[in-house]
Design a binder for these strands. Structure first.
Length: 256
DNA sequence: ATGGTAGCCTTGCTA
């Protein structure tokens, strides 16, 4: 089963690029982030036309996540547990085949010293707690999405330029490592040792043209899913097109 | 050089 994560930065604007990528890459499951629309406005028909079931959690203007899957999604959870007052559309999880799959959009957290960074760290604490719950169920799972964390300086084009960014803070990285230390596997990194492979390039300052990016989109696998990992990579093709997202898809293949 | 660009339903916010 091929599972991908793609922050589209508006599904309305990115639909042509997404459809072209689905036809070329033929993933079985796609975790989308930043759809930036209410679920009712999601372009269901176009995706059903390519053979995908669609489940989305959205809101107006910001955030929003979705799951596309060739097999129907079952037992859907539409929010990250642990905070009833959090109404930001950042999490959806479902059973697809024999896997539990989540599409998550972790808060960016900038600027430092504000409630935005506090919210990011609290969200990461909740994600860890929920991962522990999933591990206790002993069902293979994949937590895929835009983590807004570059795990190490190898995942950053210029660490000195990111010293004051929430994406590279020691606290952000410590909470990401806490997820890994539960026994989760970074699907791309475990198969690719080479540094400076990116999934995001800022629109500004010619970052894409100069390959100055960040690796912040990740697929974290439970031990039972990691045992079945056969391939993973970043597909830069969609980022090079006209009207591209600032992110590009990351994918992994889990043996049946 | 504290800018630059993109998408929001905009005159600023988020990234």
């Amino acid at each position: 089963m091929k599972i991908a994560t793609f922050n589209v930065n508006s599904i309305a604007v990115r639909l042509p690029i997404l459809l072209a990528w689905l036809e070329q890459a033929t993933p079985d499951v796609v975790c989308l982030q930043e759809i930036k629309c209410p679920a009712a406005d999601f372009p269901m028909l176009e995706l059903k036309g390519l053979g995908y079931h669609v489940e989305a959690v959205g809101q107006r203007a910001y955030n929003g996540v979705a799951l596309l899957s060739r097999a129907p999604a079952q037992d859907i959870v539409r929010a990250l547990p642990g905070e009833k007052t959090d109404d930001q559309a950042r999490y959806i999880e479902a059973t697809i085949g024999d896997l539990r799959v989540a599409s998550l959009y972790l808060p960016n957290g900038n600027p430092l010293g504000t409630e935005k960074f506090t919210y990011k760290l609290a969200w990461m604490r909740r994600l860890k707690a929920h991962a522990e719950t999933l591990l206790a169920r002993e069902v293979p799972f994949v937590l895929a999405g835009d983590y807004n964390v570059a795990p190490t300086d190898d995942d950053v084009y210029d660490p000195s330029a990111m010293l004051d960014d929430a994406i590279c803070q020691p606290e952000s990285r410590a909470r990401f490592r806490a997820l890994i230390n539960l026994g989760l596997t970074d699907a791309f990194r475990v198969l690719h040792a080479e540094p400076h492979r990116y999934s995001f390039w800022d629109y500004q300052a010619g970052r894409w043209y100069r390959d100055e990016g960040l690796r912040i989109d990740h697929l974290l696998l439970s031990p039972q899913a990691a045992d079945r990992l056969v391939a993973a990579d970043i597909d830069k093709t969609p980022r090079g097109k006209d009207k591209a997202s600032d992110h590009t898809p990351v994918w992994c293949e889990i043996a049946a």
